[in-house]
Amino acid sequence: MSDQSDQQRAPRLYLSVAQDLLTAMAAGEYILGVRMPGDRELAARLGVSRTTVREAILALELIGAVEVRHGDGTYVRGPHAGVAAIEGSALDVAPRELIESRRALEPVVASFAATRIDTDRLRGLTRDLDEGAEIVAEPSRIPRFMELGLRFHSDLALGCGNSLLAGIVGQLVDAETHPLWLLVNQHAVSSLQAREGQLRQHREVLGAIASGDAARAAQAMTAHLASVDAVIFNPAASDAATRGDA
């Protein structure tokens, strides 16, 4: 029984360590280009095994947050490194497949929600966005900000009036089902600019739904998920577009 319980906790443990390291990077504890402490030191600091630290570093390498130079150490790559070459990862379904699926489904869900969502759910979504706005500038609160962001999508889907679509979207944004996706998202919003952009886009989606405009809700969700795609897979182009360079 104990072995089974340990196996169930193990994936969440490496994910928790990886999240802690990403939060430390966003807070400036580990800056771009700097070599991180070795796995023995990190294990001691974080109170976990060296194996768990290695799994966390592997996940961070897969999402582009760090570069592992064999024989030299692990170096921080920063928030502008795109995600690539992880389609065969044993850690999770490829994030590229997840975002592709979400881009196909969630605009439809948003359009349905515009005519079917109830007042209580709208209030709950608004409260979550307000909480996100309160913590958006705090690097130490990024895990909570991410939790609120993913919950926005799953709770919005619950208001679309179609339980099958709501269940599918809920699975696509579930951190336990897709742990690597959570890390990808957290890495993508490590900058304040990215977090503020996500919050603004969520408000645009919710505003369209609250006004009952199905077409505008679908358009806002389409634009939001296209932005998520760009931030994750082509961050340089996304930064240029935000600055007005492209």
Rank of each mutant, 00 (worst) to 15 (best):
T177P: 05
S191C: 14
A104Y: 11
E147S: 15
L192F: 13
G149P: 00
W181Q: 07
L172F: 04
E131F: 09
V76R: 06
R69T: 08
L98W: 11
L105N: 02
L105K: 03
N185W: 08
A81H: 07
P143G: 08
R121L: 15
W181G: 04
R102I: 07
S191L: 15
Y75D: 00
G149C: 06
L125H: 10
R151S: 14
Q193D: 15
E97F: 13
Y75V: 01
E176C: 05
L164K: 00
A166N: 11
Q171K: 14
E147Q: 13
S89H: 10
T119V: 04
D120Q: 11
L172T: 03
D120R: 12
R77G: 10
V169A: 07
G167C: 06
A188W: 09
H153Y: 14
L150Q: 14
H153A: 14
E176S: 12
H80Y: 15
L98S: 05
G71C: 04
V108P: 00
D174M: 02
V136R: 12
P179R: 01
E87K: 13
L91G: 13
F145P: 10
P139W: 06
A94R: 08
E106M: 15
G132P: 03
A133V: 07
V109G: 07
G159K: 01
A104S: 12
L105W: 00
E131S: 08
R77S: 10
A104F: 11
T177G: 12
G124N: 13
R77V: 08
